[in-house]
Simulated assay, not measured.
Amino acid sequence: MVSAFAFSRRTITTILIITKILGRGTADGGQKNETCPSDEEKIARFDGWIKSHNLPVNKLQVRSIPGYRMGTVAQQPIRQGELYISVPEALLIGPERYQSGTPFDRLLGLVQQNSTADLSRILDSKSLLIIFILLEKHMIPDSLWRPYFDLLPQNLTMPMFFTHQQLLALQGSEVADAGREERRRARATYQGVREHVFRARRDLFPRRRFTQAEWLWASGLYDSRVIQLNRHTGRGNVPTFIPLIDMVNCRESHDQTFITFNPETRTAEMRADADFAVGE
């Protein structure tokens, strides 16, 4: 499966370099279909991807929902407190993707050789995850998470993405101030990463892929989807993207219905906060 944009010869060369560093193969010889898939096609691909990984427990499916683009519904009746979704650690995107000794860490080592800054001082966990996601999205045609990335919303509605006119309409409110501040911080972070990471190895981070707009998009996803999950590594809660679970629209309580990590099965689990009938 390949992404929906055409690759230039230079970009293909870059992809080959990155996939070799990350230990991946490329897609089947290049671009197959440059048309943008519909939401229904994206859902079908994501559903096939989820099924291919044989989740220990999965009583959900993704559907198009009028007014909400898409969301999850119950495939079978679910009782309050029941375990209804369990996502294997192999599908999670968290610190294990950039920790010492990983392919991504080795790639950053190449960047460090050309950078004038100490990357360990300027790249926090959020920046590292954003870089990882943008690399996987733009530079790895057969990324493990391709169906997940394709399903993510491209237009976010958080305050940091409000237009100037929308912010003016909210002038004086905490929402407007928060939106401006979030955008200011995200832009400042991008400027630092662009200067010390992207510009240090433009062959690995092409300018037209690693833009400020893409950085803000990934930053927005992080702020709205990342779950602080205790992975039982001794580091407490760590920021983690959990495909499918991050699409569930329900309350997270402080009893047995919150998201947890099962160290025995190595899965992220979620229990129901209420009873749900099929289709709810």
Rank of each mutant, 00 (worst) to 15 (best):
E82Q: 15
E82Y: 07
E82V: 11
E82H: 10
E82A: 10
L83I: 04
L83Q: 04
L83P: 10
Y84D: 04
Y84R: 04
Y84P: 05
I85F: 12
I85Y: 12
I85S: 13
S86C: 10
S86F: 01
S86P: 03
V87A: 08
E89F: 02
E89V: 03
E89N: 10
E89M: 05
A90F: 12
A90L: 13
A90C: 14
A90D: 15
A90H: 14
A90I: 15
L91I: 00
L91Y: 08
L92N: 07
L92G: 02
L92Q: 03
I93E: 10
I93P: 10
I93H: 06
I93D: 10
I93T: 14
G94D: 08
G94K: 08
P95W: 03
E96T: 14
E96G: 13
R97T: 12
R97E: 13
Y98L: 10
Y98H: 14
Q99S: 12
S100D: 15
S100V: 13
S100P: 11
G101R: 01
G101I: 09
T102N: 00
T102G: 07
T102H: 01
T102F: 02
T102D: 01
P103N: 03
P103G: 05
P103E: 02
P103L: 03
P103T: 00
F104Q: 08
F104K: 07
F104G: 11
D105E: 13
D105H: 15
D105A: 14
L107Y: 07
L108K: 00
L108G: 07
L108A: 06
G109Q: 04
G109T: 03
G109D: 00
L110P: 04
L110W: 10
L110T: 09
V111K: 10
Q112V: 05
Q112A: 09
Q112I: 03
Q113H: 13
N114L: 12
N114W: 09
N114V: 11
N114Q: 15
S115V: 07
S115K: 01
S115W: 09
S115F: 04
T116F: 11
T116D: 10
T116K: 15
A117Y: 00
A117K: 14
A117S: 14
A117H: 07
D118N: 11
D118S: 05
D118C: 02
S120I: 00
S120Y: 02
S120V: 03
S120F: 00
R121A: 14
R121D: 09
I122H: 01
I122N: 05
L123P: 06
D124V: 05
D124T: 01
D124P: 08
S125T: 15
S125D: 14
S125V: 12
S125P: 11
K126C: 13
S127P: 11
S127H: 11
S127I: 01
S127D: 15
L128M: 09
L128Q: 03
L128R: 14
